[in-house]
Structures are given as C-alpha cells and as structure tokens.
C-alpha cells in the first residue's frame, strides 16, 4: 500500500467520524481489549446507560462475528466504530457461508419491520428456545442488538463466490 492511499483512507475515516477501525483476525482477547477502550471513549461517567448499550452492542456484534466466521478457529472480520453528531454506529462485517445467510436475512428482515414491543416478544420467545440452541451462543445476539438500538439494524450481503458472502451489519446508538 502506498502512503498516498493511507492518507486518503485516513481522511475518509476522519470525515466519517471513525473512532476505531479494525480489519483482520480477531480473538476473544482482542474483543475485550477493544471493548474496554470503547467503554472509556464513550464515557461511562457522563451517560452510563448509553455506555452500557454501546458496550453490549459491540460485544454481541463481535461475538457473532467470531462464532459465525467461515473459519471459526481463525475468526476474521472488520469492526468499525464511528460517531457523527453524537450518534454512534457499531459496524461489523465478516465472511459467512451462503447457506447460513438465508436464515440470517430472514431474521434481519423480521427485526427491521418490528417495533420495540414486537422485538421484546421475539426476545422472550428466543429465551425459551435458547436451551435448545446449538453452538456456544443462545441465538439471541441480533435480538439483543435490536433491543439496545433505538433504530432498525442496517445490513448488507455481498456475494463473494458461489459458497460465501460478506455480511455487514450496522447498529446506531
């Protein structure tokens, strides 16, 4: 990469209000380190409620990224936190199997059209189903994000090849 490109990249990040950006392999340990930095940056003294929401959304987003990567033993992805006009956006992206994207898309469509009461109802139903949920999670991560964010979750799927897609979600707080 040329320095000129880095300069342009940095200018773009500044104009977008990026306060943290990471792309690459990501571990549980790194997730915690970034979460702690973010917690301090958001200012838990000024607005503890918002700080807790940002922390929770970040943790759920990155946890999802780690668990649902194409190669979970070497999970990789992109995490970008930006803040413009006091609105903070947590963005996570990772590569997933195309087969897994179908269910995910259905869930995201459902959440996008749901009001807060409906999200809460879905969460309650998800709690009951969590016991039977396979894998390390509870199947509640997206619901937790939807619950903590006052706005609908934005998302995108970008085809990579026949078997894989890049998956992006962004939650605003």
């Amino acid at each position: 990469m040329q320095i000129e490109s880095a300069i342009a990249m940095r200018a773009e990040m500044r104009s977008q209000g990026v306060i943290m950006a990471y792309n690459g392999e990501i571990s549980d340990e790194l997730m915690i380190t970034l979460a702690e930095i973010l917690k301090r940056r958001v200012g838990s003294e000024v607005d503890p409620k918002r700080s807790r929401s940002v922390f929770a959304v970040f943790m759920e987003g990155v946890q999802n990224l780690i668990w649902h990567s194409v190669a979970p033993e070497r999970a990789a992805g992109m995490v970008i936190i930006s803040e413009l006009e006091a609105e903070l956006t947590v963005m996570c992206a990772n590569r997933i199997k195309k087969a897994d994207s179908v269910q995910l898309r259905e869930t995201l469509v459902q959440l996008a059209g749901a009001d807060k009461d409906r999200i809460r109802q879905l969460y309650r139903e998800g709690m009951s189903k969590s016991i039977d949920h396979e894998g390390p999670g509870a199947g509640l991560g997206l619901l937790e994000i939807a619950r903590r964010s006052p706005y609908p979750i934005n998302y995108a799927f970008v085809d990579v090849n026949d078997d894989e897609v890049d998956y992006f979600i962004a939650a605003r707080i």
Partner: peptide, 16 residues
C-alpha cells in the same frame, strides 16, 4: 450488571 446473550442460555437453564 451486564449479561451477554450467550450467558442468557445458562441463566434461563437456572430458572428452569
């Protein structure tokens, strides 16, 4: 204080 969603599965099990 904060409980992540995967801990919810365990907490639900405890309540069960």
């Amino acid at each position: 204080i904060y409980i992540n969603s995967s801990s919810m599965k365990a907490l639900y099990r405890i309540f069960d």
